[in-house]
Amino acid sequence: MDLNLLSRYRTILMGFAAIMIIMCHAPQYGVAMPEVVSSILSRGGLGVDIFLFLSGLGCWYSLSKGGPLKRWYYKRFIRIFVPYFLIQIPFCFFIYALGNLIGVMS
C-alpha cells in the first residue's frame, strides 16, 4: 500500500469521513434520508475509523521528519490551546457577566 498516495489525498479523505460522521448523526435530529443512504450511513463508525486513521497517519509523518519530541508537542500545544483560550476567555467573561445580569434582574 502506498502511504504517500494516502498522504496526498488525506485532507479530501478526512473531509469525506467528516461528512460521513455528520450524515450518520443526522437521522437523530429528524433528517429523512433514502433507505440506501441510511443503510450505508448506519456504518457511521467507519467514518470515525477513517478520520482517526488519517489523523494518526498525519502525526506519524510529522514525527518522522525528525526533531525533538518536546518541540513537536510544543507546536501542537500552541496550535490547539492558543486559539482555544482566545475563544474561551471572552466567552467565560460573557457568561459571568450574563449570570450577574440575570442575578440582578431577578
Rank of each mutant, 00 (worst) to 15 (best):
I87H: 13
L6N: 07
V36F: 07
A32C: 08
L86P: 02
W60M: 13
L63V: 14
M105P: 01
V104N: 07
M33I: 01
Y96K: 11
R76K: 06
Y73P: 06
Y84L: 11
R8W: 14
V104F: 05
A97W: 14
M105V: 02
M1I: 11
L98I: 07
L13M: 07
A26L: 05
P90W: 00
G30H: 01
G45K: 08
Q88S: 09
K70T: 13
P68K: 12
M1V: 13
M33V: 04
Y96N: 11
I89L: 12
R71V: 07
I22E: 11
L54A: 05
V104I: 04
E35P: 11
P68Q: 11
G56K: 11
L5Y: 08
N100F: 05
G45Q: 13
I87R: 08
P68H: 13
R8Q: 14
L6C: 05
S55E: 15
M33S: 04
C92Y: 12
R79F: 11
L52N: 06
R10G: 03
A17I: 00
R8M: 15
G30K: 00
L69M: 11
S64I: 07
L86W: 08
C24P: 09
W72C: 00
L41I: 09
V31S: 02
I40C: 00
I19L: 10
P34Q: 04
Y84D: 04
L63E: 08
I89R: 11
R71P: 02
R43G: 12
A17Y: 00
A32D: 08
G45L: 14
M33W: 04
Y61S: 09
I78M: 14
V37K: 02
R8G: 15
D49E: 13
M20Q: 05
L63R: 05
